Amino acid sequence: MGMALSLGRRGLGRVWPNPNVGCVIVRDGCVIGRGWTADGGRPHAETQALRGIDATGATAYVTLEPCAHHGKTPPCSEALIAAKVARVVIATGDPDPRVAGKGIAMLRDAGLEVITGLRKAEARADLAGFLLRITQNRPFVTLKLASSFDGRIATATGESKWITGPDSRRMVHAMRAQHDAVLVGAGTVRADDPSLTVRDLGVSRQPVRVVASGRLEIDASQLVETIPQAPLWLCHGLNVDVQKWTDLGAQTFECAVQGRQIDPVDLMQNLANNGLTRVFCEGGGSLAASLLSAGLVDEVVGFTAGAMLGAEGTPSIGAMGLDQLADAPRFELAEIQRVGADLMHRWVRP
């Protein structure tokens, strides 16, 4: 199952709207087949692992309950039965109403031994984006903060390149690649004119670039220039003229607004409704504050440099209107790592 989990992680950021599943086929103590969900979500892991082998009497280890419904491909449960597998070990069930125990029942009705729950917590962590989209209609959200030691992302004059070092920036690109989309607010686009692509890592599938901007008052030259390489989605408020952007090749999504800002809950529901399961938010401060205040951040990754910018610098998180310390969003430390001259620290929702 450890191998299956490792294989499934290869699909992170590459298989949405489907889950990133891994599968290993074992007979007589030897691995005879292995697979993971292919880019774009098909073929599924089980059919990949079964391809070209005789699996009669074998055990299949799979990180998510095999599907039981006919979609663009036949059910994976049927594929396992047809391959004459004797036993299926499943890490966790699939809450999708089209599956939700039906895959396990199909296997057992066909006479296969089914064992569930092996390394369940790890599987659910790896599949968190898919599980959240199915159960809560929102993607898994990672908030990335790259800041000075005193929590600033720019000087008083707006200078921000570069606070953290090249090793940290390379790690950020690797993290982008493991998410379906990279999200920023309008302020970040106006200040930095970013491209938000994954660079220098040889990836074949770029994440979607998402900009949340109430009025679309942005000049996104690099984002527009790279539309042929990576999709650009613009999430905007009501009664906004989007013709200019659609003519350039961007997709636009109308969202509810709260005051002058996009409603973060409606934003995430729009992204989930369009298939996204994992979103990597890279700011700015107002967007980060709105997501934190709405309880929509599942993981915070900080890259902290040993520089001090002072109180006049731009804070990494905008105003949240907190009066009581007890109301502050809190996360649990999961990982610390030195990255070049910087410190990477990862925190998860309790």
Score class of each variant (00 low, 15 high):
27 R>E: 05
28 D>L: 13
28 D>T: 14
28 D>K: 08
29 G>N: 04
29 G>L: 08
30 C>A: 15
30 C>R: 15
31 V>P: 04
31 V>C: 14
32 I>F: 10
32 I>C: 14
33 G>N: 00
33 G>W: 11
33 G>E: 04
35 G>C: 10
36 W>N: 03
36 W>H: 11
36 W>R: 00
38 A>V: 15
38 A>G: 10
39 D>C: 00
39 D>K: 01
40 G>S: 15
40 G>M: 03
40 G>R: 05
41 G>P: 05
41 G>S: 05
41 G>H: 02
41 G>L: 04
42 R>V: 02
42 R>I: 01
44 H>Q: 04
44 H>P: 10
44 H>G: 05
44 H>L: 10
45 A>S: 02
45 A>E: 07
45 A>Y: 00
45 A>T: 07
46 E>G: 02
47 T>C: 00
47 T>L: 01
49 A>Y: 02
49 A>L: 01
49 A>V: 01
49 A>Q: 02
50 L>M: 13
50 L>P: 09
50 L>D: 09
50 L>F: 13
51 R>A: 15
52 G>C: 07
52 G>F: 15
52 G>L: 09
52 G>Q: 13
52 G>V: 08
54 D>W: 06
54 D>R: 01
54 D>K: 03
55 A>I: 00
56 T>P: 12
56 T>D: 06
57 G>M: 00
58 A>I: 02
58 A>K: 02
59 T>I: 02
59 T>K: 06
61 Y>V: 07
61 Y>I: 02
62 V>M: 01
62 V>D: 00
62 V>A: 01
62 V>Y: 03
62 V>P: 00
63 T>F: 03
64 L>G: 06
65 E>L: 03
65 E>T: 02
66 P>Q: 10
66 P>V: 10
66 P>R: 09
66 P>L: 05
67 C>A: 10
68 A>T: 13
68 A>K: 08
69 H>N: 13
70 H>K: 14
70 H>W: 13
70 H>C: 13
74 P>T: 10
75 P>H: 09
75 P>G: 08
76 C>G: 08
77 S>D: 04
77 S>Y: 08
77 S>T: 12
78 E>C: 12
78 E>V: 13
78 E>Q: 14
79 A>R: 11
79 A>F: 09
80 L>S: 08
81 I>M: 06
82 A>T: 08
82 A>I: 04
83 A>T: 06
83 A>F: 03
84 K>V: 01
84 K>E: 09
85 V>E: 10
85 V>M: 11
85 V>Y: 11
86 A>F: 09
86 A>I: 03
86 A>H: 12
86 A>W: 04
87 R>Y: 09
91 A>S: 15
92 T>N: 05
92 T>Q: 10
